[in-house]
Design a protein around this nucleic acid. Structure first.
Lengths: 361, 361
DNA sequence: TTTAGCACTCTCACTCTCTGAGTGCTAAAC
DNA sequence: GTTTAGCACTCAGAGAGTGAGAGTGCTAAA
């Protein structure tokens, strides 16, 4: 389908006005605003045709027009201007990410928080579910006679630790031996592999004192079990309540609990091949709960098997251009940080690559 | 002020009915329900007196009565029955906590989640802000030639880790030396102490390669800076939207963003001396944002300097009895877990100690 | 092809009325 | 003195009716 240039301009103007005001847009407003020296009657004719094409909708006869999901799709694929990040925005992202380069798992949820504060929509981040997850490195740190820290690095590069108490005391040499045995036997195995024997053999090798082996093994098993099913971390959930389409608390609740419970996360949108940013509009969503929201998301791959999704959720009337630009910049920032760099405090001249939503149709 | 027994019974019946239905309670309903063989006219007389005493309020002349904050206070202090946890509830708490005994910081937010799911109100958990925080133990784990894990245990027993990448490669022996030096120099110091010299001396001792010392020191400094100002972790935020008093999205948003932003957490209620559970009702709250909500909270002290607050937030029309019982049981569970035990899968015969709200007046 | 004009439609805000729930008061009953 | 029945009174909320305003679609002229 090819739209005349004028139709495109009108559609764009309508969508942008609606994004700003959340009110149905009338012909008069467009004829004044969009700059083509054209009367409202002409606009009306064009709008009628756009409605017939399914790009606009009418809440009722005498209201203005509202973009349909399909209309947003065209807008996003073809009409939308790239949003140029302001100095201030860039600085805000850089500073916030720089300040938080501690634990990598936390970095992601922090990135979500930055994103959410910047865009005024909730953001989520979730690690890619690993088909089988393994422990890559295991160690025990002796703190004092009652305390040991167990540390495990998974093959997706997440690091977990647990503080373990031994009220009856534990021997430093024993801890060392235990660490060696565990590092030798528990790295590289998956949750399915027969571990009871492993534990038994570890016990026999070390000569267990008061179940330390079992305790440590329990930690390891838990990790293997848990890290297969990541939970999304959601930031800025309450932002959604600021938008008029969610002033019905029940609607907001459905969306929020879907996001934060992490059920059916496999139904979250995933990027199409090669696209850096994917925009999924309302009914295009697989998950029932997202059907009248839109999602702007990106996948990240920070190397070392750290992969996953990060995205922003909002009403279909969403400022796609701005959100896409922010998201894209944040993902670039993450990658840079993961490579060990710091982010420059001034914005680079080259803005992030163009967003590339999947063009169906 | 002494209430006659009959007034107490009526007040109790009104509050419990209101907690259940969220509708103003009329005299007729009470006369039928409360079991004293007394007509609605008599109840009306009593209700008028209770209103005069400030324990009930009338939304308007011809509506029923609604408990006032003061009324709730009396109810909580004197009238409320202890809620006995069902087998099912106990099992649910035990299982959920048992399953999550990995990282202790996570355990707390998990406890919040359990609480929130059980009570249908949002829950928060926040560590006590440390006056000065220090590193108790520091270590580096060599993973491979490009990767090192830094682990630090703070004196409040929280353990933090960071995965560090060294694209140019790093030597295992060097990592060991570095760990020794850092453990010797960075434990026991506070954020204020003059660290540039420390770093310099560490660099000279180890003979730095490509800024590894600086990277590790950066991690340590960040920890020291950050861990002084804990953020509350909030679970089940969206639950609040399920209650009719928060169907106004704006009101809900104010509450939620207060909780999750962690601003002014010093204004969160703190337990009064000796009380195990504290209940703070509506306007009794210090924080402006909590003024028309109630908070049921407890402090926990899991030993090893792990202290903090855990609580549940809801409308003033809250099922105080149930929430207090759940919270109390969860806190007991935490303590048991911290001591290294597992929770029994069957409920103990002895239910948690009675809740003990501060009795002002 | 564009535009002005006009009749038409439909929502929203407003008012009015009616209904039902619940009260407070009074006078009688216990 | 306490309790109760009876009754007039009050008020929120639902529903119907109305007018204004915004915006449309159509027609005929430019």
């Amino acid at each position: 389908m090819e739209l005349s240039e004028r139709k495109q301009k009108i559609l764009k103007a309508i969508i942008e006005s609606y994004i700003e005001t959340a009110e149905p847009v009338g012909s008069k407003a467009i004829s004044e605003k969009c700059g083509l020296g054209i009367s409202s009657a002409t606009i009306r004719n064009e709008m009628a045709e756009l409605t017939a094409l399914g790009l606009l909708e009418q809440p009722h006869t005498s209201a203005g027009r509202v973009p349909s999901p399909h209309g947003y799709r065209i807008y996003v694929n073809e009409l939308m201007d790239r949003h140029a990040l302001s100095m201030k925005e860039t600085r805000e992202i850089n500073n916030a990410l720089n300040a938080k380069v501690n634990q990598l798992d936390l970095l992601l949820s922090d990135a979500g928080q930055v994103l959410s504060e910047l865009t005024n929509y909730p953001a989520y981040a979730v690690a890619a579910p690993a088909a089988v997850s393994k422990i890559k490195r295991f160690d025990l740190i002796y703190v004092d006679v009652n305390t040991v820290i167990a540390v495990a690095m998974m093959d997706n590069s997440s690091v977990k630790n647990k503080l373990m108490s031994f009220p009856d005391g534990i021997d430093e040499a024993f801890v060392k031996k235990l660490a060696t045995v565990f590092n030798a036997n528990f790295t590289g195995i998956t949750a399915d592999e027969p571990t009871p024997e492993l534990i038994a053999s570890a016990e026999s090798v070390t000569g267990d004192e008061m179940g330390a082996v079992a305790a440590v093994a329990g930690f390891a098993l838990n990790l293997l079990r848990d890290s297969g099913t990541p939970r999304p971390s959601v930031s800025g959930a309450s932002q959604i309540l600021g938008h008029p389409e969610f002033k019905d608390a029940h609607k907001a609740q459905k969306l929020l609990s879907y996001l934060s419970e992490g059920k059916d996360i496999e139904k979250l949108p995933v990027p199409s091949d090669g696209a850096e940013i994917k925009i999924v509009i309302g009914p295009e969503n697989v998950a029932e709960e997202l059907r009248d929201s839109s999602v702007v998301m990106a996948s990240y791959d920070l190397g070392n098997n750290m992969k996953g999704l990060i995205g922003v959720v909002g009403p279909t009337r969403m400022d796609y251009a701005k959100v896409a630009a922010h998201l894209s910049y944040v993902v670039h920032g993450l990658r840079q940080l993961a490579e060990g760099g710091k982010l420059p405090l001034m914005p680079p001249d080259l803005l992030p690559a163009p967003s590339e939503p999947d063009g169906k149709e």
